[in-house]
């Protein structure tokens, strides 16, 4: 056989030239005309009820364009982000899927440190951040549980009221009764170990990032976001959260600075930015 162009050869990557010369185009490298910045105010507590928001002084801070709290999201009737994969309990019951609102409203509880409660939109990154510091959130702090093994013990604080014992599903694969028991009963030797799966934290070097662009004249939305899965993000966001037809929404994943699975999900931040 004669020489082939590619088989058995080392092929240079087409994207390398722009990456090694500083010409890559990651989400944060995009600057649109009239672009403004969002800063999300997040719960400093793992488990806390929000009694009230005070946004008065933040609203009059320099450069602030708008502030939305969980109360505004609730009032607008916007749904939370759905889980993209349905699992079932061993007995066949569907998994418990508690709501994951876009921002936590007063009267509801923040479920983890970093749960979003308000978003500030301002003309610059610095002004958005300054104004966020002026938002006062009255929290009532509750006990929290941080280890999975402790979370299922009787009396553990509940993360979601709808998930008793903090269990959303218990899942198994294979046919333990017929096949595993049969194998065990004829085994020469049985070894038992307790195996605890480690916490998994895919950690790409490019952080989460998103830019929302609304074209009012044509009623079309564009979301630029660092994503491994732009089609699914569009489907979930349109069908389950915003109630928009997919043909009005375009999701663009430009150069992506690593993902390792963490950028497969549809993130709440994306929704904030696509909402007009």
């Amino acid at each position: 056989m004669g020489d082939t162009q590619y088989i058995g050869k080392s092929v240079k990557r087409v994207e390398d030239k722009r990456f090694i010369t500083g010409q890559g185009r990651y989400t944060d490298d995009i600057q649109l005309p009239g672009m403004v910045y969002a800063h999300i105010v997040r719960s400093p507590y793992a488990h806390a009820k929000i009694n009230s928001f005070d946004i008065a002084s933040a609203q009059s801070a320099p450069g602030v364009i708008a502030i939305f709290t969980g109360d505004d999201i609730k009032k607008a009737g916007m749904g939370g982000v759905p889980c993209g994969w349905q699992l079932h309990f061993k007995n066949g019951d569907p998994m418990v899927e508690p709501p994951h609102p876009l921002l936590i409203a007063s009267g509801d509880t923040a479920k983890h440190v970093g749960d979003g409660v308000a978003v500030v939109i301002a003309d610059t990154r610095a002004n958005a951040r300054d104004a966020a510091d002026l938002i006062y959130v009255d929290y009532e702090v509750f006990d929290a549980v941080t280890a999975a093994a402790d979370a299922v013990k009787p009396g553990a604080p509940l993360v979601h009221e709808s998930a008793p014992s903090n269990i959303c599903f218990d899942w198994e694969i294979g046919n333990p009764k017929a096949e595993v028991d049969a194998a065990m009963s004829t085994a020469h030797h049985i070894t038992k170990i307790n195996y605890r799966n480690q916490r998994l934290a895919p950690n790409a070097i490019e952080p989460r990032c998103a830019i929302g662009d609304y074209d009012g004249a044509n009623d079309r939305y564009t979301l630029y976001t660092t994503s491994q899965n732009p089609h699914l993000t569009r489907l979930l966001m349109c069908a389950f959260v915003l109630g928009l037809p997919e043909n009005k929404v375009r999701v663009v994943a430009p150069d992506v600075g690593g993902g390792f699975g963490s950028k497969i999900y549809h993130y709440i931040v994306s929704v904030h930015l696509v909402s007009k």
């Binding site: 722009r18 090694i20 010369t21 790409a204 070097i205 490019e206 690593g258």
Partner: peptide, 25 residues
């Protein structure tokens, strides 16, 4: 004309997503 380091990163596959690459170079 690329800098020898830029050549090196391309020749030796010293990058994948490219995000850290400018800092490395």
């Amino acid at each position: 004309n690329l800098h020898p380091l830029q050549e090196g990163f391309r020749e030796e596959h010293g990058l994948q997503c490219g995000f850290c690459t400018p800092g490395m170079i």
